[in-house]
Write a protein that binds this DNA or RNA. Structure first.
Lengths: 214, 214
DNA sequence: CAAGTGAACATGACACTGTCATACTCGTCA
DNA sequence: TGACGAGTATGACAGTGTCATGTTCACTTG
């Protein structure tokens, strides 16, 4: 958990840097292998040694490129949360309709279903020792911005008078997002029938919207 | 993860059993120590050796009583989820008012805040290797029954005509529960300001109730 | 009462984990 | 050509959960 002295792999875009030797093993290969192992064997099967073996290098490579398992998890978090964001924001531009908000949340839930490891890494704490790095969590805030935009568009369309306040849009966005997340959680735990979740989540969000101005 | 041959500690209520020797070290002492270590050092610091040292016995005790770390986590799950249930159902009898549903969910969220380890063990997967045992998860279903009762009472009071259908009560209960859980998740991840969560969660649930019959 | 039985407990060992110190390779630059 | 330094490899260390083995000892049975 010591982030000190760990170079961010983001500024490794230039392979030759300050006269140093160009890395013979790409950091991407390591993250790729980690992701494959994660999907195949879970967080338990994704060990430094297994990753190094999969790439065909020594364990030290993980420490040179990421400073250790924590740094590698940070990089994984970046990649996986970006995937969540891309999938959630690829729906369309906010139209302000109820249908758009429903589609956005439905897309979000389907993404959480498709990449459970990503969801787990972003919203839970699947590795006991690991807590997320400071710059890795900005992706979550970024994704939330899109939800606020969608909520603001909805308020603009449905509000009787005047321009909706931003704070009200944030409130609505948090409400809708929380509800969607709650359904994901209960489905993951096994308390909810997945086939029925879509219908019910839609109904809940419709109810929130219908009763929002009450 | 091999539950085979592991006696359920629930039927150890009678210390003398089939001629066997009564256990000199109570299983409760082990779970107590595990819970203390969990609160102090997290899931990472709660190891078999540390637990055994805290109780003052050997590691084997964990295996005799619980069959291993998995069985101990099952027992911890039982105890902690029971705590969540007790706190959530200790509010009062369902009155069918909106205030009661709000109080129940608020209590639930405060419990999740007070015992984050319990929440994590019940609703997340904090230990990579461990997946919950079959009989340990019935507590979740039990707690949900109380929410359904509260939702049914609310429907009975607010419904215009006739007796509410049980399926509609279940739908409403899942919606309310999911929303409350979603706020807990976002607060845990750090996306939401805890001091503002109470107000907003109340507003979201009020909106759901207001728009439920729409 | 004495022998036997078997559960509870203790201990050493095994494979595994992340991490670090150290040694080695080898491209780059003075 | 020599020094430098980044990338890589390897051995070691303290941890982890788990299991095989050995010991203790209360209770049952002959």
């Amino acid at each position: 958990m010591d982030d000190a002295g760990v170079a961010d792999s983001a500024d490794r875009s230039d392979p030759i840097e300050r006269g140093g030797r160009s890395p013979s093993v790409s950091a991407d290969a390591v993250v790729d292998a980690a992701e494959v192992l994660l999907a195949e064997a879970g967080f338990d099967g994704m060990s430094v040694r297994r990753i190094a073996d999969a790439v065909g290098v020594s364990r030290q490579v993980v420490y040179t490129h990421f400073g250790g398992m924590d740094g590698l998890l940070d990089e994984l978090h970046r990649r996986l949360s970006q995937r969540l964001i891309d999938a959630a924001t690829s729906v369309s531009e906010p139209t302000g309709t109820t249908a758009h908000l429903l589609a956005a949340t439905a897309g979000y839930r389907s993404v959480a279903r498709r990449w459970p490891d990503a969801y787990q890494l972003v919203f839970e704490r699947p590795v006991a020792d690991y807590s997320i790095g400071p710059d890795a969590e900005r992706f979550g805030l970024e994704s939330f911005g899109h939800v606020v935009d969608a909520a603001e568009a909805w308020l603009r369309v449905t509000a009787e008078v005047g321009r909706p306040r931003r704070s009200d849009a944030i409130d609505l966005a948090r409400a809708v997002w929380s509800t969607a997340h709650g359904f994901v959680v209960l489905e993951r735990v096994g308390f909810a029938d997945p086939s029925d979740t879509d219908r019910l989540c839609d109904r809940a969000i419709r109810a929130i919207l219908a009763g929002w101005h009450a």
